[in-house]
């Protein structure tokens, strides 16, 4: 290998190695990129818009059926169900409802509700003004609670969508109290003891 060749090879190898490390970083960058992509397209029913929604007008020409569904994942013993199974709202109209939760076990527990919307096309149009899924919900042994949800449907919802289903999976976080959130998600509140 001539002298000049060696220098060339060294330069090329350094460039290729940095490319490999850059792609390793890109693998991790895919995580926030995925969240941004979800926010735009509502991919996988993820729903990010929290807080007061600046809605122009109430569109009384059509009603949208909002359905509530609950799931207790991974042997979560709490009793957890919506007070109203499904309701009809006008797009742009603020609506309040509540979810009932009871901790039947003999020890203190804390849980986190994870929302998901279907059809995923409708996810960007469902604004959760105030939701119990913003914070972790602690419950003493045997206690129960009415958890509020205030939401509004954006009038710009496409015409062909007439039913939106909002599901909540209630996860038990009692052991994993100190689980730091992977992505600084806006809706991660503190444990209210």
């Amino acid at each position: 290998m001539t002298e000049q060749n060696e220098k060339q090879t060294k330069r090329l190898v350094v460039r290729l190695a940095t490319a490999a490390i850059a792609m390793f970083g890109f693998g991790f960058a895919l995580v926030p990129l995925y969240d941004v992509f979800c926010e735009i397209t509502g991919l996988n029913g993820k729903n990010f818009n929290q807080g007061p929604a600046k809605v122009s007008s109430v569109d009384r020409s059509r009603t949208v059926k909002i359905q509530f569904v609950t799931v207790n994942p991974a042997s979560m013993p709490w009793e957890f169900k919506p007070n109203e199974r499904s309701i009809r709202v006008f797009p742009g109209q603020d609506r309040q409802t509540a979810f009932y939760a009871r901790n039947p076990t003999a020890h203190w527990m804390v849980a986190q509700a994870v929302p998901s919307v279907t059809p995923s096309e409708a996810a960007p149009y469902l604004h959760k003004v105030n939701c119990f899924c913003f914070d972790r919900q602690p419950l003493e042994a045997g206690a129960d609670i009415e958890m509020p949800l205030l939401f509004v449907v954006d009038p710009k919802l496409p015409e062909h969508i007439s039913t939106i289903t909002l599901s909540y999976a209630l996860y038990d976080l009692t052991e994993k109290q100190n689980v730091t959130h992977t992505i600084p998600n806006k809706n991660k509140g503190q444990v209210t003891l």
Binding site: K46, V71, S167, A169
Partner: peptide
């Protein structure tokens, strides 16, 4: 069927 998410 994905845990934590809903499909239709």
């Amino acid at each position: 069927a994905i845990p934590g998410f809903i499909n239709e």
